[in-house]
Amino acid sequence: MAVTSKPESILGSPLEPTGLRMKRFLGALPTWVLWLVVVVWTIPTLGLFVSSFRPVDEIQKSGWWTALWRPDFTLDNYNDILFKTTGGRDALWESFLNSLAIAVPATVIPVLVAAFAAYAFAWMDFRFKNWIFVGIVSLMALPNQMAFVPLLRLFRDGASWTLPLTDITLKIIPSLSAVQGTSVSVWLVHTAFGLPLAIFLLHNFMSTLPKDIIEAARIDGASHFVIFYRLILPLSRPALAAFAVFQFLWTWNDYLVALIFLQPGQDTPLTIALVNLVGERGSNFQLRFSAAFVSMSLPLLVFFSLQKHFVRGLLAGSVKG
C-alpha cells in the first residue's frame, strides 16, 4: 500500500450519501480493472484447457467458448496422445519421462556444484576471488548461442591442444561419443548454463548469514568443510529451493538446447514432441491441446505449490542493492 490514500479517512468523513457511493466505487475501481486483466491473461490458457477435453469434430466446428454453455467433454484426446503410438509417433508418457530425466539431474548437479563454490566466494579468502566472481556473474548475460557450436564439436571430437612451437597435438578430452546425442549431454550443458545464476543467487544469500555463527564455529576448531555441511547448507535451504525451482522450470521448458544436442528421435522431451506434433498439421489437430496441457501440467503444479520459492529466486536474481 504505497500510494493509496487512507480508506478509513474516506469512509469516516461526513460526505453526503451519493458522494460516498461515488468514492467507494472509485476506490474499488483498481480491483475491478485488475480482475479484468486477470481474465484477459487467463483466457488463452483456459481456451486450451477447455479444448483439450472436446471431441474432434466439435473443436473444428465451433469455438471453445460454446462448450461453456453446451458442455460436451471427453477424455479421448488424453488417452490417444498419452498411450497410443500412431504414425511413428511415440506415446507421450515416454516423452514425459524423458523430460523428467533431463530436468532432474540438470537441477540437482548445478545446485550441488554451485553450493560449494558460493560458500567459497562468500566466506573464504583467496587470490583473484573478486575477479573470478565478477567473471562468473558476467556470464549470466552470455547468450547460450555462443557455446553451441564448440560444445557440439566437443562431444563429437573431444578436445585437443597443439603444444606451442611443436607439431605435437595432445588429446586433452576424449570424444564423448557414448554421451553425444543423449539426454546426458543435455543435462551437462544445462549444468554449465545454469551455474552462473546459481552461484550468484547462493552467494548473495550465504553472505547475508550472520558472521558470528561462522566465526564461533571457526574458534571451536571446525574446519571449513564441517562448517559448510553442518551450518551453511541447512541454513541456505530457502536459497537452494529458490534456485532449484527456477532451474527445474527452465530445463523442463527448454526447447533449444534439447533440439541442438539430442539425436533426432532419441530421448525426445515434451517440448520437441509438441513441436513435432504441431508440425504434422491436419489429421490430429485435436491432439495438440491435450499434448500441450500434459507438457504444462508439471510446471504449473510446481509453480502453484512452490510459488513462494520461485518469486524469491526471481527477486534475489534481479533486485539487488
Binding site: W41, S51, L249, D254, P299, L300
Partner: peptide
C-alpha cells in the same frame, strides 16, 4: 499469481496456446 502464471509455461506451449 494468475498474471504471473505464463512464466511457468514453456514458450512452445505458449506458441500452441496462441496459435489457437
Amino acid at each position: 499469481a494468475m498474471i504471473f502464471m505464463p512464466m511457468a509455461i514453456s514458450m512452445v506451449g505458449a506458441a500452441v496456446i496462441w496459435d489457437f
